[in-house]
Amino acid sequence: MPKVHDRGGWPTGEAIDMNDHPPMDWEIRLNAIRQVLGQKGLLSSDELRRGIEAIAPGRYETLGYFERWAESIESLLIEKGVLAADEIDRKMADFEGGNV
């Protein structure tokens, strides 16, 4: 049985939805973060894909494309010791609480 990302030929009656959502700022910035980290040798496309493929199958199917990227990149940065999980949490809380 193929893994959830190995999508070719999966039975689906779904039509192709040709509506394109306008890119959100965070998606554009995440794409750029990935490129910069790649240029620095800190995160390759192959690692990004491995991180995406590690997302639980049910979650993989419900997340948007860049949401998968965000989760993969966060996990990889933590795995590599570039960032710590708790400092990301703290920074998010700071932004959310308006403490910055």
């Binding site: 910035r29 995440l30 973060i33 419900t62 948007g64 989760e71 966060e74 998010m92």
Partner: peptide
Amino acid sequence: HPGVSQDVEPGLHALRVKAIEALL
């Protein structure tokens, strides 16, 4: 999670990316 393909958690990923960029 509901069976949608965008924004299953509106704002959460945006916030996460903002935090990651700031920390980097």
